[in-house]
Amino acid sequence: MKQPQDWTDRARALLDASAQHLDGATVSRLNQARQRALAVQAQRGASGWVWSRRLALAASLALAAVMFWPDARNGANPAATASAALSPEDAELLADGALELTDEPEFYAWLDADDEHNG
């Protein structure tokens, strides 16, 4: 025995048929609308991908600068660069401004000779 709502199956079939029998121009318009919507998605995806790449590149460059160019961290303080060759105590004095280095080679030559002379 058929149930009272069985006519809805027939209604569904009729509606399906009406959706399937659209004319070519309408189907084409629907296709264009879908492609437009998908293009929006593609643009957003591409934009996100480009920005991800840019971010990754920037992060890589920053990391490389830190790892392979340590002077860059202290570039604003030449005295600190020289401190790398000094003892910790000298470095502290240098940082406090109590010790000044000179560029005169004669001074270093005299210093070395004096050390040799004094044994």
């Binding site: 509606l15 959706a19 659209l22 629907l30 879908r34 998605q41 593609a42």
Partner: peptide
Amino acid sequence: TARQRLDGFLRGVERRALR
């Protein structure tokens, strides 16, 4: 793949949506 899935979904629903 995501675009294909989205395309398939919209293709499946568009005619009924129009009606």
